[in-house]
């Protein structure tokens, strides 16, 4: 039986929260946008292309959560070569994971915006580009969360150390 330290366990928890919470946010965001999109394509099926692109935008936070989880797993030796992970280091990974996980909740706001922009596109197809710009504004904070995760892991020498 393989023995895992508590540190590795905490890191795994961090990775799980990073992906899990971000997945909730992204899932809800995509769902909200999709509900609006269904109404648009019921009126005009030709709008499916722009609707699909707008609906996909809140997925970004899920991707960031996934990326965060991978980086934590790499740093903690869950993926790749095994490393010694102390409890404080495990807690650091946990903190990093919670950052991206919670940052992923911004996808809900992004989904609401995407849904509203689908309505704009239904009336004025030429507003698609502007709609995309409005929609991605929420992502800024998810990016900050990802950046903090990277800074935490690099600063604590979990990555690149």
């Amino acid at each position: 039986m393989i023995e895992f330290s508590l540190g590795v366990g905490l890191a795994a928890l961090g990775a799980g929260l990073s992906m899990g919470i971000a997945a909730i946010g992204a899932g809800i965001g995509v769902g909200i946008a999709g509900a609006a999109g269904a109404g648009v394509i019921a009126e005009d099926p030709k709008k499916f292309g722009p609707v699909l692109v707008l609906q996909a935008l809140p997925q970004t936070q899920g991707i960031y959560g996934f990326l965060g989880a991978i980086l934590i797993m790499l740093g903690a030796g869950i993926l790749g070569a095994a490393v010694e992970v102390s409890i404080p280091l495990g807690l650091i990974c946990l903190g990093a994971g919670i950052t991206t996980g919670l940052g992923g909740i911004t996808a809900i706001g992004q989904g609401i915006t995407a849904g509203a922009c689908m309505g704009a596109v239904a009336k004025r197809p030429e507003s698609f580009g502007q709609g995309m710009v409005l929609t991605v504004m929420s992502e800024t904070f998810a990016v900050f969360s990802l950046l903090i995760l990277i800074l935490i892991l690099v600063g604590a020498k979990v990555l690149g150390g």
């Binding site: 991707i63 960031y64 992502e139 990016v143 900050f144």
Partner: peptide
């Protein structure tokens, strides 16, 4: 910060 965000956005290629 926008430039940092835009650059990190390309991490999705790897993801």
């Amino acid at each position: 910060t926008g430039a940092v965000g835009d650059t990190l956005s390309y991490a999705r290629l790897m993801a």
